[in-house]
Computed example of a mutant assay.
Amino acid sequence: MHEGQDESLFEVFWAVARRLRHGTRVALEPWNVTPSQSRAIAVLSRHGEMRLSALAEHLRIAPRSATEVVDDLQERGLVSRSPDPADRRATLVTLTEQGAATATAIHRARAEEGERLFAALDPEDRAQLSRILRILRD
């Protein structure tokens, strides 16, 4: 019997996901950011300035948790807060110049980690896997 033949597709998929998460965590060590902080930086980089409540929705976390993430990022000089001119009760969050540079560096490190993982596949297999994963995602 071939090694791992008794593993289900589900188990193999999660093993690969764990490997990718671990590799990404190691790749992000130079910036000393948590996964939640990294995701917040990516959302702000992609979408620009947004309300704290909208950031929480994008991250699929409670507003209180988003506040904690933003507090940590603000303390490190990566984001800034300002009152929303349309609603004084709301707060806008935006990346600082340092935050934007960090976002670029993190994006590059994550892409390189993905390339390292998927380098074991030939171009045809990569294309097939990408097609399949997009179907499952959507």
Rank of each mutant, 00 (worst) to 15 (best):
M1W: 09
M1P: 14
Q5D: 15
D6F: 11
D6W: 11
L9F: 07
E11V: 08
F13K: 09
F13M: 11
W14C: 10
A15Y: 06
A17T: 07
R18F: 10
R19I: 03
L20C: 08
L20Q: 11
R25I: 05
R25V: 07
R25G: 13
L28T: 04
E29M: 08
E29D: 10
W31V: 06
N32P: 01
V33G: 01
V33R: 03
P35Q: 07
P35M: 08
S36R: 10
Q37V: 02
Q37N: 05
I41F: 04
A42T: 07
A42V: 03
A42W: 05
A42E: 10
V43S: 09
V43L: 10
L44W: 04
L44T: 00
R46V: 06
R46D: 10
G48S: 04
R51L: 08
S53V: 11
S53C: 08
A54G: 12
E57G: 12
E57V: 12
E57I: 08
H58T: 06
H58N: 14
L59Y: 04
L59F: 04
L59W: 04
R60A: 15
R60T: 13
R60Q: 14
A62K: 13
R64C: 02
R64H: 10
S65A: 14
A66G: 08
T67H: 14
V69Q: 14
D72F: 09
L73G: 15
L73S: 14
L73K: 14
E75Y: 15
R76W: 12
G77M: 13
S80K: 14
S80E: 15
S82H: 13
S82M: 13
S82R: 15
P83L: 11
D84M: 09
A86R: 15
A86D: 15
T91E: 13
L92D: 06
L92V: 02
L92R: 09
L92S: 05
L92P: 06
L92Q: 06
V93F: 11
L95K: 04
L95R: 01
Q98S: 11
G99P: 01
G99H: 01
A100P: 00
T102L: 09
T104N: 01
A105Y: 00
A105G: 08
I106E: 04
I106A: 08
I106H: 01
R108N: 03
R110H: 01
A111T: 05
A111R: 07
A111E: 05
E113L: 00
R116N: 01
R116H: 01
R116M: 00
L117G: 03
F118L: 10
F118M: 07
A119V: 00
A119G: 01
E124T: 05
D125Q: 07
D125G: 00
D125C: 00
R126N: 00
R126S: 04
A127D: 03
S130R: 09
R131E: 07
I135D: 09
